[in-house]
Nucleic acid binder design. Structure first.
Lengths: 142, 142
DNA sequence: AAATTACAGTTACGAATGTAACTATATCAA
DNA sequence: TTGATATAGTTACATTCGTAACTGTAATTT
């Protein structure tokens, strides 16, 4: 069976592999250090970076499905890494804010993130790294 | 809380987003057309491209975990898209080969794949597309 | 040859996921 | 105001997933 199609050159396949390699490399860090899942890491990172947000705002920042956000928030709350505050004007909404412990975990993982970033940057080279970042951003408009 | 870390510029995050966008675009096709999962599509594509293989060979080609391969093979077999042949020399091993129906599904999805590829190529531009492919391939060595 | 180790592939089980339904609240329209 | 519709977030349920244990066979060691 022959065809002009080659799985190993198929961009979704290539991209997925590179993406997994990259994601898992960093996942090892937050998993081993704090037993966190990817959703939890993303929620933590978003709250750490932007301060208090609602679950919906976290969704739009991270692209996570609302059930994932809900579960990740619950799990982070259980660790006492965040507190909820009911919104005064809209009682459906909870403001979510990291505690000191949550911030400290965020800071620690940020450092790891920067280090990981540097490692990848060194591997690819500064120019290629930048080029790749820019290219990937274009996919938002696909 | 401020930091030099920005989730939206973090390569694992960027890459994952681009990857999902790309993968899901194509997944719609094999899912709607044949109700297939990603693992099933990959196994089909690999068998279609390389002819009869063992489960282990499929693993190395696709990077899928062996349980995923096992389940995908089982599911494709149930559709009668592949047949198993026990290896003469090693009875642990099964040679897996697509049936005419399997090949026909593969051919149909290949065409869709080539079309999808062209669409992405047009979107990115020929040069950028090539550059991205090359860049992604480098991640195998990370 | 018997015992041990390695390997191909499957299965069991708990964890994570996605869809859809749900609760509670807010907004809009008549 | 009341009734209909929309939204924030959670929960239930079925599916999928990954890890580890398992089965059967082959290869290696003693």
């Amino acid at each position: 069976m022959k065809s002009e199609f080659d799985l190993h050159s198929f961009l979704p396949f290539l991209m997925h592999h590179a993406s997994e390699k990259l994601s898992l490399g960093f996942r090892d860090i937050y998993r081993d250090r704090y037993r966190m899942t990817r959703s939890e890491w993303r929620v933590l990172a978003t709250l750490g970076q932007y301060g208090a947000l609602t679950a919906t705002e976290i969704m739009t920042h991270t692209g996570l499905h609302k059930t994932k956000v809900s579960r990740a928030v619950f799990s982070i709350e259980k660790r006492r890494w965040l507190k909820r505050f009911q919104d005064e004007n809209d009682r459906r909404v909870h403001r979510l804010d990291l505690t000191a412990q949550g911030k400290s975990a965020f800071t620690s993982l940020c450092e790891a993130g920067v280090a990981y970033d540097r490692k990848v940057r060194d591997f690819l080279g500064e120019d290629e790294f930048k080029r790749l970042s820019d290219l990937l951003k274009r996919f938002n408009d696909l």
